[in-house]
Design a protein around this nucleic acid. Sequence first.
DNA 1: GCGCACAATATTGTATACAATATCCACAAT
DNA 2: ATTGTGGATATTGTATACAATATTGTGCGC
Lengths: 219, 219
Amino acid sequence: MTSFERPTLVRDGVYDHLRRAVLDGDLAPGERLGEVELGAQLGVSRTPIREALMRLTQDGLLIAEANKGVRVRTLSAAEARDTYVVREELDGLAAALAAQHHTPADAAALRAALNELHAAPGSDYRAQTRLDLAFHRAITHAAHNAALNDLNRDLEQRVALIKHQTRTYNAHPQTDAQHAALLDAILARDHDAARDAARTHVRTFAALVLNDLQPRSTP
Amino acid sequence: MTSFERPTLVRDGVYDHLRRAVLDGDLAPGERLGEVELGAQLGVSRTPIREALMRLTQDGLLIAEANKGVRVRTLSAAEARDTYVVREELDGLAAALAAQHHTPADAAALRAALNELHAAPGSDYRAQTRLDLAFHRAITHAAHNAALNDLNRDLEQRVALIKHQTRTYNAHPQTDAQHAALLDAILARDHDAARDAARTHVRTFAALVLNDLQPRSTP
DNA sequence: GCGCACAATATTGTATACAATATCCACAAT
DNA sequence: ATTGTGGATATTGTATACAATATTGTGCGC
């Protein structure tokens, strides 16, 4: 929340900055975002701040109440469950399409992403989360489907919000094996196996996260 | 584009107004939207206009170029194909979930929506489109999955844009039968049949639309 | 007649001023 | 003590003013 780069337009800089802050968990779910305060922190007027907040609200990362400002969105346990149901379907589709359409460059990127993820220290929650996301993005990218990529962006954001509410740790005995199986199936161009592997992975992971989320109250 | 109602906030009124205009095809794909012009037409300042345009851009209905304003989005043939691939998956999921989770009220709404659709004059393109959309929305609603509803909203918008580019007519010999089969499967709580029926319907419809889209150039 | 440069114009981007609404604290009435 | 009312304060919502960038058109040179 200190310095920030402007791409060309101030509002885009603010948007990127705040989006990352929410997705990285620097802004906690439920936290209120005041326009004047943000403007002072980033050294810009309220106008680009407002426009960035508007976009983030439309993304579903923030919740706006009329005349009451915006807050970082919190998802109920039910919404979290719903999200993983959809994610299972869409991740499965992404894996199947990636198996069918991936290029040699995609294959290299997928291998690299998984290697990075395996190399990350198991104790580093943020790095783990970031690299896991990168791996899944590589799969979606390899699917070469623009609509899927757009929708997946929304889902990624929801999952990030859920994770920050639960602080569920990524590591799991089966995670590495599942990732490997998924990658193998994609590279082998076996779209059915890839779809199954992706769906299984989402299911196990969802069970983990939802188990953590369940005990808490659902505001 | 003449009168418009304001819910409470001006920007929300502008947003709803413009969104409907784009989705109804009153604003043609590719058409440029000037801020001062819109402000004059709707009788408000540029600020709420800008904020509405920002949100619509984030929705994917408009395309913004820096310092060059926004235009109604046009989708390439490839993007249209991609959209229907995803829609097939998500409509299938929605139908399956609706079959599992629909309430008596949902069932009544589904029946009513389909009846309305059947009753609409086959020559009324706009009514046909609107009621078809309402039927599909009823299904998604009956699925009782918030995440799916949100994502479906994005897909609906894309499909609306595609349709306005092609002006494909909704009517098709198989459409009525497919709708009926889909509804029957949902009401019978047969989620596999419902999923298949939805996917089949999307496929036949996609083929129709894409066939119309293909001849045209892809800007 | 064609093309480039440059100015005139228009439009978007940002900042600020003003209005409307909500929040919060003090204080009184029960 | 608690609750309700009122005003003071703060924050959002809208309008407008100013700055920066793009577009357009005109004139000059070739």
